[in-house]
Structures are given as C-alpha cells and as structure tokens.
Amino acid sequence: MTEQLEQNTPLAIDAQHLVKRYKHKTAVDGISLQIGRGETFGILGTNGAGKTTTVEMIAGLRQPSEGSVRILGLDPFTDRAKVRQILGVQLQQAYLHGSLTVRELVNLYRSFYPNPLETDRALSMVQLTDKARTKFDNLSGGQMQRLSIALALIGQPRVVILDELTTGLDPKARRRVWSTIESLSDQTVILVSHAMDEVERLCNRVALIDEGRVIAQGSPHQLKEQTQSATLEDAFVALTGKDVHDDEEEDA
C-alpha cells in the first residue's frame, strides 16, 4: 500500500460554506456538509437544486466561489494528485472510449492507480463478467452505469462519489446497482440522487438540498419523524413544498 492512514484521521468530507456563483445565478448558496468515514451519505434534491454542482466542487472539478472542501483533510485543488488517488467518482452522463470493450476499459482505468482491484473482481462486482468482450457503445444504459460504478471503485478509493446512480435504469438494474453499493463496507459513499427510495434504502444520513441550500439534514428516520411523514418522499414534500416527480415530468 502506498497510503498510510494516520490514527487521528479527519472527517471523510468536510465542506464549509460552499458557494458557487455564475453570471446570473447562484447555484450553491452556503452549503456545509460533514461526512464521517464509512458513512453512506445521500444528497437529495430536485433537478437544478445544486446537488451536482456541490459534489463537483467536492471532487475538485469546479472551483467554489467561496468556502472550502477537505477530503480526509486534503484540499481537492492544492492536493489534487493525492486526492485523485483516494477518491473515486462516477459522473452523471460521462462517456468512455466507445470502441473499447468492457475489459479493455477496466484494464485502462486500473492502470492509473497504484493499488487497483483485479479486473475480474471489478467485473463480477457489477455483474458484467459476461459482457467483458462487449464494446462500450453496445452496452445498455444499465450496463454502462454499472461499468461506470466499477471504474469509480477500481482504484479502491477511500471516498466514492456517485452522481445519479440509477437514473434511467429499469427496476431490475436498479436493484443490482443497489446490491453493489450495499456491498461496500469500508468506503465512504456520497450518493447524489433524486430517487427517494434509493436514498432511503442505502443512506445512513441525508442532506435535502433546495435552491442551493441545505434545508434539512439527518437520518432518513429522523427526517420522517421530524415531518411526521410515512416515507422520505413525503418528508421531502413537507420540507420543500415540491414534488420531485413534478420536476421529473418538467424535465421530460
């Protein structure tokens, strides 16, 4: 191992007062998140709420206008090379080399890391062993998504960011992906989603984001109790006054 964790290791994620302003819009408006090691933390909100911008700032893909981020105490911008080795990211709608096969892609991405998973293990983890010789372009949406997750995990990262994990997948494919995430016991996982059932099933804690701000934070159970709701979806409606499905229809 090239990485030695010290005894007094800090939070997995410590984001303080993140702000992201564009010309005519403030996409993220003072979000703070503290995520402990080993947690599966959900970031929940409607489309355009600022979820993806927030995790892109955490991942070091977007420079915050204000605020700071630490991943296991490292700054994703000034400690970029170190952070890239301990962070795995599954981006929303990211493409790969389309003419390469699944196995070729896994081999390519594992060559970037000092201590990667074995190719066959990564493929079996996301149930893609039988698709190893299939080109990326010929995969279904669910298979692409599962490969994307495998590539996020290939470097055995300490922290994993998964953005819109199962959007567009059929129920069977969703359950397969959920099983994969549930099998991660050592990693800290940040799950960005607007799928309430997914977050409720997978996450220890959740931050509800609306219009660039955290409006509530806690375990799914706490949020339901706080709003006296039967489901997390009801709690979301009670807290935001919005229905996530209306938003999906607008997008469609």
Binding site: R70, Q85, H97, S99, N107, S111, F112
Partner: peptide, 25 residues
C-alpha cells in the same frame, strides 16, 4: 486533525501504454 498521508504515485509506463493502445484502437 491532520490530513491523511498519501504517497503520490503518478501513472507509470503501463498507464501510458494502455492509453496509447486505447487511442490506437
């Protein structure tokens, strides 16, 4: 609290060869 200690290892020759191979394919 101090940050974790990570020894940076940049992608080596194998990564370069894989990437060149990928682009060629």
């Amino acid at each position: 609290m101090s940050a974790v200690t990570v020894k940076v290892r940049k992608p080596g020759l194998k990564a370069w060869l894989r990437l060149i191979q990928a682009e060629a394919k």
